[in-house]
């Protein structure tokens, strides 16, 4: 009997996330975040988490921290953040406080390197040579090689246990569509995680979505829950 992908609540969809998990959180500038799943994760209480995400909302003050991730950090659930923009330095974020107190490890990864490492992880590629970090501190400890088109640095694939993504529309087989800039990190994160959980604005029956329009085919989406 086929195990369905539909879950009745965000709590049920994240219930098995164990301590020590690596979790991808899709979204851009605080939009397109699976907030229901993140709230359920906070409630669940899993700890020693590594969280990989882009950034939080922007304001007149500059870059913010993502509140739902900040809460996980200040509740002591997170040991490591990997991000191109984890928080705004000097903003008094709880993330900054925990980092300064030595309770949190932060790895800054340039955005285009992070996305390509996730793509490699999701696509079964052993590693990628990228020109981005040449001559900067992000090159340190990495192999540099010269190719016909120039020099490049070896970046290793990145995989995760879970991805929490927000989708606009999904059918019950997991085939997903996004709206506008809401797509951002979700497709690559869905590929790079062992289990991808989609929080959907609209859930439909198979056949209702145009197969030509599917961005994340259902093979990458394991669990579905309705956004509230």
């Amino acid at each position: 009997m086929l195990q369905g992908k539909l879950y009745g609540s965000p709590q049920a969809a994240v219930a098995d996330i164990p301590d020590g998990s690596t979790i991808l959180v899709a979204g851009y500038a605080g939009y397109g975040i699976a907030e229901g799943l993140l709230a359920a994760l906070l409630e669940l209480g899993s700890k020693d988490l590594t969280i990989i995400y882009r950034d939080g909302p922007y304001s007149d003050m500059g870059l913010g921290a993502l509140p739902s991730i900040e809460k996980l950090v200040s509740s002591g659930r997170v040991t490591k953040l990997i991000s191109p923009i984890p928080y705004s330095p000097g903003s008094g974020s709880d993330i900054e406080e925990c980092w300064q107190a030595g309770q949190l490890e932060i790895e800054i990864v340039p955005q285009g390197i992070l996305v390509e490492r996730l793509r490699a992880g999701g696509a079964g590629i052993g590693g990628v040579f990228l020109p981005t970090a040449i001559g900067t501190r992000f090159e340190s400890g990495r192999e540099r090689r010269t190719f016909p088109q120039g020099e490049a640095v070896l970046e290793l694939p990145l995989k995760a246990d879970y991805a929490l993504i927000k989708v606009a529309e999904v059918d019950t087989l997991g085939n997903s569509i996004y709206h506008g800039s809401g797509r951002n990190w979700a497709p690559v994160m869905a590929m790079a995680a062992r289990i991808t959980i989609a929080e959907a604005e609209r859930i439909v029956e198979p056949g209702e979505l145009d197969p030509e329009a599917i961005i994340s085919p259902g093979i990458f989406v394991n669990r579905i829950v309705a956004a509230t």
Binding site: D55, P84, G90, E96, Q100, I106, I108, G112, I113, F138
Partner: peptide, 19 residues
């Protein structure tokens, strides 16, 4: 990055600079 302010925010700037 301003070193006196701790971690920096690289975003996509490095990729733009290189690419």
């Amino acid at each position: 990055m301003l070193p006196e302010r701790g971690v920096g925010n690289i975003g996509g700037a490095m990729d733009l600079a290189a690419g």
